[in-house]
């Protein structure tokens, strides 16, 4: 299997606080990795380091074999990234924003228009294409963020809470979209919704206090608790005292 995402010993310290502590894993093409953990466990920081936004204190992250810190631009071309909270430029229209992303990514003219039309189709944005982003609902904003990450049809997707703020129908659409793209991409999604992990992820990593404490397919993780539910396993693992967790 082609490993598209490789993380080795990734560590981030903020002063005395260690947000991410020696995290290592890799994700191959065709895998959808669910990134789970309580708030403040280090999920977003790990994703920010993967996207090259936060510089790690130690360790390396590679996208498609390219070091995120040293071959930054080359690594980022392979990545579609939805940052935490899906930040967007509020005064731009949806089309104007996607045109900007297309331009930065080097798409011009007809190709840019085709790509924008395609991602609008995928994320159901056609109805709001000429509206300023600030007037959109939370669900639409999240989808604009997704559209931006998919525009260049990247082999690697890192999506920080892609379904946050969506209604149940929209959540279902996004999950279907992720499942459809899964075979040819390596995808990491972070989420608090455990049923989502069972629905779309081929593998789940649970992270707590900056460390990976479990890494297995969701069904297998669920079996670790007598009740057989992923939620119980999650709770048991992440509320355990530090000594046990480590």
């Amino acid at each position: 299997m082609e490993k598209l995402i490789e993380i080795e010993g990734l560590t981030k310290r903020f002063g005395a606080f260690t947000a991410v502590d020696g995290v290592s894993f890799s994700v191959s093409r065709g895998e959808v990795l669910g990134f789970l953990g309580p708030n403040g466990a280090g999920k977003s920081t790990t994703m920010k380091m993967l996207a090259g936004f936060v510089a790690p204190t130690a360790g390396t992250a590679r996208l498609g074999g390219r070091d995120v810190q040293r071959e930054t631009v080359a690594a980022r071309r392979l990545l579609g990234y939805l940052p935490e909270g899906a930040p967007l430029y509020p005064e731009m229209t949806v089309t104007g924003f996607l045109r900007f992303i297309a331009e930065v990514r080097g798409f011009r003219g007809a190709e840019a228009r085709e790509r924008i039309a395609r991602v609008m189709e995928l994320t159901n944005l056609h109805g709001v294409r000429e509206l300023p982003i600030e007037t959109l609902s939370k669900g639409f904003k999240r989808r604009v963020g997704l559209a931006q990450a998919l525009l260049h049809d990247p082999p690697i997707l890192v999506l920080d809470e892609p379904t946050d703020g969506l209604d149940p129908n929209q959540k279902h659409e996004v999950r279907t979209l992720i499942q459809r793209m899964a075979p040819e991409k390596a995808i990491i999604i972070s989420t608090h919704i455990l049923e989502e992990v069972e629905a779309v992820c081929t593998r789940a990593i649970i992270i707590a206090r900056g460390r990976v404490i479990a890494d297995a397919p969701p069904a297998e993780l669920a079996k670790r608790h007598p009740s057989g539910s992923l939620e119980e396993t999650f709770r048991a693992l992440t509320t355990a005292p530090l000594a046990e967790a480590a």
Partner: peptide, 9 residues
């Protein structure tokens, strides 16, 4: 949005 801008290629 700085995170969006500075994670573009």
């Amino acid at each position: 949005t700085i995170e969006l801008l500075l994670t573009l290629p």
